[in-house]
Simulated assay, not measured.
Amino acid sequence: MTLRGDAVQVLSGWRAPDSGQEKARLEFLRHLEEHPADGMWRECVDGHITASTAVLDASRTRVLLTLHSKIKAWLQLGGHCEPGDATLADAALREAEEESGIRGLRLLPEPVRLDRHRVGCHPQGSWHLDVQYVAIAPERARHQVSDESDDLGWFPVDELPEPTDDAVRTLVARAVRS
């Protein structure tokens, strides 16, 4: 199965928790239908599927966030799919491991949330259609700041740092309940 095929399968089988998430799910599937060749890839100007992860510590009381070097806000870990990714879950886990330096993350099998947000991948702008997962870090996991981050840190799930946004707050709340 291709990465696009996996994305269609994941999105088709995912049970959205509310009407807003159902609308996003259908929009993501429509995007893949309208862009069969490039809808997964950064090169698609209209937007592209991305994968991200809320990384929780083993106690599920802290979340690992990155101070993104371009956006200058605290965000979950994640990014673009790559040709070597077999599944969306693989992409989410790869991005989380690359950006955190933590090996042995345990990715929960199903996405917890979808988020569509404007990005500057192209001069005229583009959209990330982000499929968001949760990973649990091993006990005493040690992180390492990557080239994509200005900083990386653990924060109590009910005391997120600023600046961040409602999308991150909602993802963390859903992650804790998963």
Rank of each mutant, 00 (worst) to 15 (best):
I102L: 05
D57W: 04
R60D: 04
R118Q: 12
A137Y: 05
A24L: 14
L65N: 05
D115Q: 14
C121N: 15
L88F: 06
V119C: 10
V176M: 05
G153K: 04
D147N: 09
D150L: 05
A135Q: 10
A135I: 08
G5E: 15
A37S: 12
L11K: 03
H31K: 04
A7E: 11
L77V: 05
S12D: 04
H35M: 08
Q144V: 03
F155R: 01
R15M: 05
R169Q: 05
A91K: 03
L77A: 08
D150T: 02
P111S: 12
V112T: 14
R94Y: 11
A96Y: 05
R94K: 12
H68S: 10
D151M: 01
H128V: 00
E162K: 15
D46N: 12
E148W: 09
G101Q: 13
G104A: 08
Q76E: 09
T2H: 11
E99N: 02
R15N: 07
S100I: 03
Y133W: 15
R118C: 06
Q124H: 10
P138N: 09
A73D: 08
Q144H: 07
E27L: 14
E82I: 00
W74H: 11
A137P: 05
V112N: 11
P111I: 14
A16L: 10
G125N: 04
T164M: 06
Y133H: 09
H48L: 03
H117T: 02
W154R: 03
